[in-house]
Design a protein around this nucleic acid. Structure first.
Lengths: 334, 334
DNA sequence: TTGTACGCGTTATCAC
DNA sequence: GTGATAACGCGTACAA
C-alpha cells in the first residue's frame, strides 16, 4: 500500500539502513553519490516516513494529551491555543479531549491517551481520580495539572491565586459601598470554585461585613437561573454579585435581562474569567482575568522538561490574576 | 520498562497469541481456565495494551486530524467541540491543529498528521495547497473540507450558504431603510469571505442600491481599525455595516467605542458569525449564525464513512445560516 | 561507507 | 484450544 523505506532502498539500489541514515541526517556515513540517489528515490516515490513505526521503536510519540474540563470555557480555549502553539514549535502534537468535569470520562481519557503512548499529559483535573493520578506520578510519567489543584497530590501544577484575586475584587465592591454582596458558583466540587468562594468570605470577614448563606449560591448551570431568581427575591436582595466563571456570567446576563435588572446601575457585577468582549459591551464588565497564554506556556514547559527527563519540582506555579475595573462596578453605594 | 503482552503470557503460563486472543475477546478459542489465568495476570501486572504497536499492525490509529484555521474563532471552537464529541463516542481521538490561515503551516500539518498515520483529516482549508489536496483525494485518503470551499477541488465539504445568508441580511438592512451599507471582511483570500461579499453586492444590485467600492473594506485585522476610520471619515459615512466575522466584529466594537458611535442608534450592525453573548449585551447584536454543532456532526460522519470504506460523494453539504434580528439593527432609516 | 540481522509490541496464520 | 512464527515499518549495533 503505502511506500516504505524498503521501497526507497530498492529504488535507490541501497539498503534500508542507508535510507534510514539519510533520513536521520547522518550524512557522514554516506557518499555524496548515494545521498543524491536516496534523495531522488524519496522524491520519486513520494515517500513519507511512518511515525508510528518510529514511535514503536523509539518509545516516543511526540504527542501529548490535553484533558480539558470543557473547551467551551474561553479560558480553556485560550490555554489550549497557547499549548498547541508551544508544542507545535517543538515538533509535537497535542490531542485535546473534553472531560466535561466527569471523573469517569477523565479516567477513560487518561487510560486511552496512555495506551496511545502519548509522551505526557496536561490535565485540568476533576480531582476525583486520585489513585490514578498518584499512579502516574509514582511511575514518573510526565504530568502537569492545570487550573485546579488536587489536595492529596504533590504534582507540578499551574494555577492562579483564586482566593486572593477574589478577595481583592470583593474588597473593591466593599470600597464602593456595597454591603449586600452575593457570589454565584457552580457546584463546589472543584478547588477553584472553593477558593473563589473562600476569598469572597475572607474579604467580607476582614471588612466586618456579615456573611449570609443565602448570598452564596452554588449549583449546576441548568438551575442557576432559578437560584438567581430566589436570590433576587430575598427581602434584601444583593446590590452586587460575583459570577465565578464565564458560564455563570452568561446565566446572570440572561437573568438580568429577563428581570430588567440594569447591570452597573442596580447591580454591581464582577466576573471571574476571561471574557472576550468584556471591555467593549455596554456596560463594560469588570473582570478578574487569568493569564491564560503565560499559563499555557509554563505548563507546556513543565511537561516538556519532564519528557526530557529533567527534574521538575512537584509544586504549584501560581500566577496572579488581573482585576480590570469597568463600568459594571462603577456605581458606588452610599 | 512497561509491561508487554509477553510479560502477561509468561505470568499466566500461556503464549502471547493466547493473550492476544483474550484481549480481542475471541473467547471461543479458549478454555474457561486459561481465560481466568490471563485475566488474573493482566490485573496483577496492571497491563495496558500498546495502541502504537497495534496501529502498526492494523494500519489504523483511531486518530483523526483536524486542521482548523484558528481555534480562537468561536465558530471553530464550537465545531471542534462537536467533532471531538462525535469521535470520542466512536472511540477515536482528534488531534487539533491551528494553521492560522498560513498555507505553509497547513502543508506542514497535513504532512505531519499523515506521517502520524491518522485515519483521516478534517480541514478548514487555506485553499492554497491544491496539489496536496488533490494528491490525498486521488489516493482515496479520507478527507472532509470544512467551512471553506476549494474551487479546483471535488471533495466532500461541509459549508454554509454564505452568499444567500448575507444577501438576506443586507436585504433586511435595506428594508429598514438603509442605503449606505458597508461591509468589512478580512483579506479576500478565502471562499467564505468572497461569498459573503458577493452576497452583499447581489443584495444591493437586486435592490438598485449603488455599489460603492469605498464601502467595501477588506484588510488584515491589524489594520482594520484604520480602515474603519477611513470608512467613517467619508463624506457620506455608512449608516449600516456588515462585519464578516467575529474578529472583524471585535474591531468594529473597538472602533465604535473609541469614536463614540452608538451601535443600533447611529449605526446598524450585523455580524456574520456565532457570538456567545450576542443576545445578552446592550444593544443586542443581530447575527448570522452558523449551525456549528450540526456541521461538525455531519463532517465527522462523512469522514468516518470514508474511513470505513463507504462511498462518499465529493459534493458540498450546504447548511443554512440563521439570521437573528436584534437591537443592533432595530432602528429604521426614513 | 554500506549491508545484515534483530528488536519494538502487536496481530494473523497456521500447525499441532 | 493453544502456540510458534512471520509480518508491520523503522532504528541501530555490528559486521563487512
Amino acid at each position: 500500500m503505502a511506500i516504505t523505506m524498503a521501497d526507497v532502498a530498492k529504488r535507490a539500489g541501497v539498503s534500508k539502513s542507508t535510507v534510514s541514515q539519510y533520513l536521520n541526517k547522518r550524512y557522514e556515513y554516506m557518499s555524496q553519490e548515494t545521498r543524491v540517489k536516496v534523495e531522488a528515490a524519496i522524491k520519486d516515490l513520494g515517500y513519507q516516513p511512518n511515525h508510528i513505526a518510529r514511535s514503536l521503536k523509539q518509545k516516543r510519540t511526540s504527542m501529548v494529551g490535553i484533558i480539558v474540563a470543557n473547551i467551551m470555557h474561553r479560558y480553556s480555549t485560550e490555554v489550549c491555543r497557547s499549548l498547541e502553539d508551544y508544542f507545535n514549535d517543538h515538533d509535537m502534537n497535542a490531542i485535546i479531549c473534553n472531560a466535561d468535569n466527569d471523573p469517569e470520562k477523565e479516567r477513560k481519557y487518561i487510560e486511552m491517551l496512555r495506551a496511545k503512548q502519548v509522551d505526557g499529559l496536561i490535565i485540568f483535573p476533576t480531582g476525583q481520580n486520585v489513585e490514578l493520578y498518584q499512579n502516574m506520578l509514582k511511575n514518573g510519567y510526565p504530568v502537569v495539572f492545570m487550573d485546579r489543584k488536587v489536595k492529596e497530590i504533590m504534582a507540578p501544577s499551574v494555577v492562579v491565586n483564586n482566593k486572593e484575586a477574589t478577595m481583592r475584587a470583593v474588597e473593591h465592591l466593599i470600597e464602593m459601598g456595597h454591603k449586600k454582596i452575593a457570589i454565584a458558583t457552580e457546584s463546589l466540587t472543584i478547588s477553584t470554585r472553593l477558593e473563589r468562594r473562600q476569598g469572597y468570605m475572607d474579604a467580607l470577614k476582614e471588612n466586618n461585613v456579615p456573611i449570609l448563606e443565602e448570598y452564596m449560591i452554588s449549583t449546576e448551570i441548568n438551575s442557576m437561573g432559578s437560584e438567581l431568581e430566589n436570590l433576587f427575591s430575598l427581602q434584601e436582595p444583593p446590590t452586587a454579585l460575583v459570577a465565578a466563571n464565564d458560564l455563570v456570567f452568561l446565566e446572570v446576563l440572561k437573568f438580568a435581562k429577563a428581570s430588567r435588572i440594569k447591570i452597573g446601575e442596580q447591580l454591581g457585577l464582577i466576573v471571574f474569567d476571561n471574557i472576550p468582549f468584556a471591555d467593549l459591551v455596554s456596560p463594560s464588565v469588570t473582570t478578574i482575568s487569568q493569564p491564560s497564554q503565560e499559563m499555557g506556556l509554563k505548563a507546556a514547559e513543565l511537561l516538556l522538561k519532564q519528557i526530557n527527563k529533567e527534574e521538575v519540582n512537584p509544586v504549584d506555579t501560581v500566577f496572579s490574576c488581573e482585576l480590570y475595573l469597568r463600568e459594571s462596578t462603577k456605581r458606588s453605594i452610599e
